[in-house]
Amino acid sequence: MELFPLGVEHYILGGLLVGFGVAWIYFWTGIVAGASGFFGATLSLFTTRGDLKKYANSRSWRIAFGLGIVSGAFLFSILTGSFFVTKVQLWRLFFGGLLVGFGVRISRGCTSGHGICGLSSLSFPSLVAVLTFMSVAILTAFLISNLGVLP
């Protein structure tokens, strides 16, 4: 069995670039930046229901970071001429997204918050979070493909 059928270079270089983005923000501002707060921060522009109030101080950087991520991927696609449209079914994107948006706010972190920021800070709670979402996601993805849902 091949571990990396598509090669390894683009994964490694892409990962280093993602890490560089995090380091760049830390160098200039001292902020430990994760992506999941973008959604709550954007919502807090329109409503202060419940704990959305807590984004008052971090709102502007969270939104700037999210918009930067969209723009960076867009610039990369322009420069390399590689745009992409998924064939994953729409209900999967929507209902999966719903659980992702809910879960990351309850857990206070995602693949970048717990994964990149937390693990690189040797945070034990983040390690627990990463092992939890990785194993649950693997089980879920296997279950769905075994039910014959493709893609």
Partner: peptide
Amino acid sequence: VVLGAAIFGIGWGVSGLCPGAALASVGVG
């Protein structure tokens, strides 16, 4: 932390999307 991560994991496994990657995915069209 654990419960939220488990819910996120189900969503990630259903969609293949996490917050950062979903935003980047908008950028790639």
